[in-house]
Design a protein around this nucleic acid. Structure first.
Length: 605
DNA sequence: AGAGGTGGTG
DNA sequence: CATGCACCACCTCT
């Protein structure tokens, strides 16, 4: 293998009439590998330079600029019977769709496979880059320096560039074979199947992007900036008496006394100057302070947060070609199987309070509509199903309010339709426990949230578990099994592995506690992720089958957002709703599943 | 460059 | 003894 990696055999293709040979060699191969090299990570501004395709025996590196007619290659790429090996398939999927109008089918992504196999293991040690996989599975070193040379491409291809382009597909076969054995060994083939079906859905989702009303966004930022300025001024004036510095700036105004964003300087202000003994300057601490400066600070923080996290920087990410936002969705961005999202992270746009207006600037363009649907209490339903608890199942089967029903059980009060109005505190306490359980939360933290003593909180939890014993049993057994086996599983069979601490580790107990909490949470969060991903695949398939002008543009754990023409929006909503329910029923056998949503011109939840 | 603090989401 | 799951972005400070 070393020799092959050092001196890869490949055929360079730079004439149209050579494609016949490529096609004839590969047309009967069940497994081929594909990769592309271009000038940019953004498919819309990328210039495609090289297209690599090959079997285990034959590798071809095609100079893209020399080919006019891609039909023979398109046949190979779109052949649903052939398995395509790729590293980071979504990138190539997007590039091939935009640059060559090809739609990759039946993909195996070595990067995604690795995330499935190593879920839970430290990223530093178990990277997913092609170089890391080559080292791990083939014991060889893949130079990555050459890759960078494509981004400032000068017009002619070097020998080194061709060589490494060829290597990028050659290594995939060996990695695939070893990963495939591991997928079977750990019983992860069902998960892999689902994840690979999700690949084109994510590719299309990233290509579509999310339209945003940039003008409205900018205007709102200006308003908030003015507010922040006012508050900052007030704050500086209020704290000035505590400091000696009273210098004036060039315009005769007072200079800033302290940097309001500096935690260090704020600690000094609150503790030394104001004598208020705070442990941190976070909202929860500041809220408890009855001091005008703390109140101003909270107000300032609110504006500062919105401006820094959701301000102009987000608009800088608008794509120059599409004028839309195209975030990166990490298909396995978490160890539980959820997506994560970045550049920008649309999974953290405010949904409540002052910041919620930002969501209204995410819109449907003219003549189009957004379809937003989310699972109703997805994770609680998963917990109900996995634990088999009768009270939870009854609530969901009869449509009773879950938190009221568990409160009624706990406190021995009769459940009525207006329970929420009659006993709001009881319901709130039950709700806190219901949610807390899913994170493996203990009495201490529950006590601090609902404002009772730790003993009272412990009593509440005991009471809860005595009425809902199956939940207690399920949580305890899954925590125990996570520590004993070193992994936990979702309903689909997705696994999260744990790196168990050494018993001599001074933090041993704390680490085990963490593993126990993650063991409780992962089957719940992870099964929910399985469900949402299956729903996305099914929705995408039906949109295609019915030839709707509709497509998924965003996902937020238990929520799916699509964009459709206004003519197709109602039908798209119907499909989206139905398929979410069906996906839910595929995983939950005891607990009914419910989803809500609708058609609108702006993102609403 | 990386860590820690803070805070946004489900 | 203490004990909240899963992320990402921005800021300051070293």
């Amino acid at each position: 293998m070393f020799d092959v990696l050092r001196d890869p055999k490949f055929i360079f293709i730079n004439k149209q009439n050579q494609l016949k040979e490529v096609y004839d060699t590969l047309k009967n191969e069940p497994i081929i590998a594909i990769d592309t090299e271009g000038t940019s990570l953004d498919p819309y501004t990328n210039e495609l330079l090289l297209f690599q395709i090959g079997s285990k025996k034959y590798s071809y590196v095609i100079d893209v600029r020399s080919i006019k007619d891609w039909r023979l290659i398109k046949n190979l790429v779109e052949d649903t019977k052939k398995l395509k090996l790729l590293q980071n398939a979504i990138y190539d999927y997007k590039v091939l769709k935009i640059s060559l109008n090809m739609e990759l089918q039946n993909m195996y992504d070595t990067m995604v496979a690795e995330a499935i196999i190593r879920s839970g293991l430290s990223r530093a040690e178990y990277g997913r880059s092609l170089a890391a996989l080559t080292r791990r599975y083939l014991g060889a070193t893949l130079e990555k320096e050459v890759r960078k040379t494509f981004s400032n491409f000068t017009g002619s291809l070097t020998k080194a560039q061709l060589k490494y382009a060829a290597l990028d597909i050659i290594v995939l076969f060996g990695i695939f074979e070893k990963q495939y054995e591991l997928l079977k060994k750990y019983d992860l083939t069902q998960v892999a199947k689902l994840e690979f079906k999700v690949l084109p859905v994510v590719g299309d989702m990233e290509l579509r992007g999310f339209y945003i009303d940039a003008e409205a966004w900018k205007n709102h930022i200006k308003v908030i900036e003015a507010e922040r300025k006012k508050i900052a001024q007030k704050l500086q004036d209020a704290i000035r008496p505590y400091y000696k510095i009273k210098s004036l700036d060039l315009f005769g105004n007072y200079a800033e006394v302290i940097n309001l964003n500096s935690q260090q300087q704020l600690m000094e202000l609150f503790n030394d100057k104001l004598g208020l003994d705070v442990s941190s300057t976070g909202v929860s601490v500041l809220e408890k302070l009855d001091h005008p400066i703390a109140k101003l600070m909270l107000e300032y923080r609110g504006y500062e947060k919105l401006i820094s996290a959701f301000g102009e920087t987000l608009l800088e990410k608008l794509n120059p070609v599409t004028k839309r936002l195209h975030p990166d969705y990490q298909q396995l961005g978490t160890f539980t199987g959820r997506f994560s999202c970045s550049n920008p992270n649309l999974q953290q746009i405010p949904s409540r309070g002052e910041g919620a207006v930002f969501r209204t600037f995410f819109r449907a363009p003219k003549g189009r509509r957004l379809i937003t649907t989310d699972y109703s209490q997805q994770e609680m339903r998963v917990l109900a199903d996995l634990s088999g608890d009768e009270t939870l199942l009854e609530a969901y089967k009869t449509g009773k309010d879950l938190h009221s029903l568990t409160a009624a059980q706990m406190y021995g009060v009769e459940y009525t339709e207006d329970f929420k109005k009659k006993h709001p505190e009881l319901r709130q306490a039950a709700k806190t426990i219901n949610f807390g359980l899913m994170y493996g939360r203990g009495p201490t933290s529950i006590a601090s949230q609902i404002g009772v003593s730790v003993d009272e909180a412990r009593e509440l939890v005991d009471k809860y578990f005595s009425k809902m014993p199956k939940i207690k049993n399920w949580l305890e057994s899954v925590a125990k099994s996570g520590v004993e086996k070193g992994f936990v599983s979702t309903v689909l069979g997705r696994k999260r592995f744990f790196e168990l601490p050494d018993p001599s580790d001074p933090n041993y107990n704390r680490e085990i506690g963490k593993i126990e909490r993650a063991s409780k949470n992962t089957p719940i969060q992870g099964t929910s992720a399985d469900m949402t991903k299956l729903a996305m695949v099914r929705i995408n398939a039906r949109f295609k089958k019915e030839r709707l002008d509709a497509g998924i543009i965003h996902t937020l754990h238990d929520e799916i957002v699509s964009e459709a023409s206004k003519e197709h929006a109602e039908r798209a909503y119907q499909i989206q709703y139905e398929e979410m329910i069906k996906a839910g029923e595929a995983f939950l056998k005891r607990c009914p599943i419910e989803a809500d949503g609708g058609v609108s011109i702006q993102w609403e939840h």
